[in-house]
Amino acid sequence: MLDGYPNEDAGRGELIRVENLTVGYGETNILEDVSFSVYEGEIFAILGPSGCGKSTLFHAMIGLLPIRKGRIIIGGEELGPEERVDSLHRIRHQIGVLFQSGALLDWLSVGENIAFPLRESTDLPEEIIQHIVQLKLELVRLEGCSEIKPAELSGGMTRRAGLAAGMARDPRILFCDEPTFGLDPNTAMEIDELLIEMRDFLKVTIVVVTHVVPTLENIATRCIMLDREAKGVIASGRLDSLKNDTSDQRVQAFFQRRIPERQSQV
């Protein structure tokens, strides 16, 4: 059921596999028995209303939250309930992350934020690192902002700079938690376009967490939807089929939410 699009995924490697994952905080499990796969070159979306455990799943996938049951395999490296520092290290060497609250270190300039991970984890000479910084800034259209401190950027710029920093090491997989959260529709669309560009140009596979539907429609190849009561995946597949062919009330409710309605609730 999960991978019902063989023609689409044929020939592509499976890059991430999550198997029967259970995670939570304290006494409660937030997600139970979650399974899905992400394939090379996809933009894979994790959807669901606020509080359903998207960020929880996200943090588990990058090894910031212990796994209670099941396992996660990323690029052949496995994470399970036991702490395995070396495989976690190897996984983290292949990924870039854009957190919900940003991805920049406050005390470094934008350019240094990109250069810093490169200096720490590669043996590239400074000259090349400076060129990489330049390239990454061009890619996110922030050329000329290298010296600026993150605090001086606008919201959209912060997100773009965060993308550049997340992509600093040319990861195989980019994880983004709510990359367009709190941005106006136009700026959000710019970020979406950047994500597509990253995938096409830099061949990065992208896992994106979001509760904002409209922006997703043009970028995601496949997605899963989480639900708080079900503590797991309630739907998965291509976004349009999820949207149009579903009989599940919860899924319909999610897609039918419109911004005016939400405002009237507040």
Partner: peptide, 25 residues
């Protein structure tokens, strides 16, 4: 290309990472 975005209020995520530090109970 000019790198301009429109300033907006960044709403803090009310829950985010726990990191390695609050493992388990």
């Amino acid at each position: 290309r000019s790198g301009q975005g429109i300033a907006e209020e960044i709403q803090p995520g009310w829950i985010t990472s726990l990191g390695m530090w609050n493992k388990g109970r």
